[in-house]
Amino acid sequence: MLIEVFGPGCAKCETLLKHTKHAVEQLGGDHTVIKISDYPAMAARGVLSTPALAVDGQLKFQGKVASSAEILELLKA
């Protein structure tokens, strides 16, 4: 899976990135986590409030710091 974390680099976005990496580690397997902090890219993807998370190109939530457990749940689904 390709997991993208959107955020310009504020504390909340870093926290979400950390939680996401943690969730991916627990999930195991071969997945890529990337951080997107470029505004034009965010705008193109329809991100309205940060931090946001997308899995395989699909935006899952935005404006929220989800916990590792929530993200793990989301990745398993």
Partner: peptide, 17 residues
Amino acid sequence: TPFCSCSAVPLFIGFLR
């Protein structure tokens, strides 16, 4: 509305679009 100033730019563009 919940709003964090680091979200100002994506929100601005999202609204206009």
